[in-house]
Design a protein around this nucleic acid. Structure first.
Lengths: 331, 331
DNA sequence: GATGCTCTTGGGAGCGCTCCCAAATGGAGT
DNA sequence: ACTCCATTTGGGAGCGCTCCCAAGAGCATC
């Protein structure tokens, strides 16, 4: 406020070296004599020098910022363990770097436009995106601008070349279906996810691979949609004895409807969700669910992005992480 | 990449005006003739000009970034509706401004040091903090540096002058206790929150105001701690007939323990939580809880910060939002 | 026609940094 | 003593922008 912060020139003067040498020390160049380095470090310490980020960015043409864009309207955002885990994973991986994470939550078309406007080299070095739908123009736009990009979830048609991290949705869904069959269930149904998201498609496909053409109703991963879909399923087949929901919140909704329809879980109807969320431990009965390692996914996303940023490794373009069935009491 | 982005000089040349005039248009100054403004806007549009943020920041000495710092280790982070709601509120309020939100999750002392290093005028114009504990040195440090700061949750001793937003924790807790008494419960107990956080202190105080010196065990707001505390409470008084937990996750843990100890909820023991979280709708029975409007709190935090940033209004220093008891089935 | 005013304009200066070139240094080889 | 090379160093240039000053333009008044 009153006294302005020291600049690198101040540091150089105090250390008795030139600006260039001071800069080299700050940036960890090896081309500096030990004596000069020590003097500069001492000056930095004494002055409490912090490099001016704007000035550095101006000349290096980097921002040291990456954006995390979450395109999801309404309550799903962050209430679901899916988001929470990924954000935690990203954040902890990012803490190891000198990058800053900036968070952009897109809840409406207007906000999407605004976000798109900011997703340029002027503002960020790279972008990570969560929860994109098929009709979301943002990934293609970012990709076209040449900005490094990593998605969470396999991109749908038209964007297959974008690097991404995903859980093995199909296998997870297959395991769930197989388990239900192994338990002697014969009338399977599923509350599928939205078919404009690859996770929704893959989980349904995996389920069908094993369960054949079971009854299907669609939801949007939210609890309410799960309840609605479950009601419709019961309507279509009151004798169904097993349900696979493509997300835990949908499974919660389904369980609520099943119980109020007088079905006992798991005796009358077995229920399996997808996420393996902690919240599933408090339902009655606790929800058996396909676990996906969200934190690991977040870390992997960061790793893929970093690889693109440094650009020295032949970049992997996809990472698929394992899922497994977490047995609790609902199936 | 190949062709460099247009600068304001390019725009000015194309519009046939000087750099100064172009800059004035970009920054919305009124001291520009309509003709010049139109020409510049046309050039901007044709060239797809986007101002270079670093260059602007360098000279204005602002960053147009504010930090959201969340100091919370482990799983609580984001899995709780508390965080989710506040972040959503902040994000939606921020979308109305030209500020960028940058997210810093502090999960260890090392990360806190790193965060503290970045929370300077060099990097951000203001700071919002969530979930601070009494021993967290960050708020005082940021405050001392003169950076605009808003906390979520009334600060504990030594930092009362920092602007904050909080729910009316004491009143909410009182309502819960009163309701339990009104139901004819006589042997009340509480799973209190951490006493190094103001929410923990205030909720316990409010509860005691009404319930007198009921049985108290402490948790850290997490589910596991709630389960542990509940076990201890049952141990101390097997005949207790009502429990107030200072957070929903602790209430979940408490319910789990109560049920496995053979207690029926709410017949044998009534349970009330604090948060009013959606997850409380899926427990068995659904959790009665003190609702706090987290999204609104996030929006209010943003408003308080903005007021400090623009500095033209005599800044409010605190906002207390209402809580109310949300009746579901556990009490 | 000269004067004074307001509104608008162009462009120099400079923000703090990194990049890079050229100069200085010092040691080894002749 | 001289050359040659590698290492280290200082500082000019310039990144793209805003700030601000001085000058120009336009108009009314004397």
């Amino acid at each position: 406020m009153t006294e302005s912060r020291p600049t690198i020139e101040t540091v150089a003067a105090r250390a008795g070296v030139g600006r260039g040498t001071a800069s080299r020390v700050v940036n960890g160049s090896s081309q500096v004599s030990p004596a000069a380095r020590a003097a500069v470090l001492k000056a930095i310490d004494e002055l409490g020098y912090v490099p001016n980020r704007a000035a550095r960015n101006l000349v290096t043409r980097r921002t040291d910022c990456v954006a995390l864009v979450i395109s999801e309207p309404g309550e799903r955002l962050f209430t679901e363990p899916y988001f929470a885990g990924i954000v935690r994973g990203i954040s902890s991986a990012m803490a190891q770097t000198n990058l800053q994470l900036w968070l952009s939550m897109v809840q409406s078309p207007a906000e999407r436009d605004r976000a798109g406007h900011f997703l340029t080299r002027e503002h960020v070095d790279g972008v990570m995106m969560l929860s994109q739908h098929a009709d979301d123009p943002l990934p293609a736009k970012v990709r076209a601008s040449g900005l490094p990009l990593v998605l969470c979830g396999r991109p749908l048609a038209g964007a297959e070349d974008i690097p991404f991290v995903d859980a093995d949705n199909a296998i997870g869904a297959r395991q769930a279906a197989q388990y239900l069959l192994d338990q002697g269930r014969s009338r399977l149904a599923t509350v599928a996810g939205p078919q404009d998201m690859s996770a929704g498609v893959a989980r349904l496909q995996g389920f069908r691979d094993v369960a054949g053409d079971a009854l299907v109703e669609y939801g949007d991963f939210s609890e309410e949609s799960g309840a609605r879909a479950m009601a419709a399923l019961l309507d279509r087949d009151p004798t169904l004895d097993a349900v696979f929901a493509a997300s835990d919140p949908m499974a919660f909704g389904a369980m609520r409807v099943l119980k109020s329809a007088g079905r006992h879980i798991p005796t009358d109807v077995a229920v399996i969700g997808f996420d393996g969320s902690p919240a599933g431990r408090h339902t009655d009965p606790p929800l058996t669910s396909v676990f996906q390692p969200t934190e690991e996914m977040g870390r992997e996303m960061t790793r893929l992005l970093l690889a693109q940023l440094t650009g020295n490794t032949p970049t992997e373009t996809q990472v698929i992480v394992d899922t497994h069935l977490e047995h609790r009491g609902s199936a």
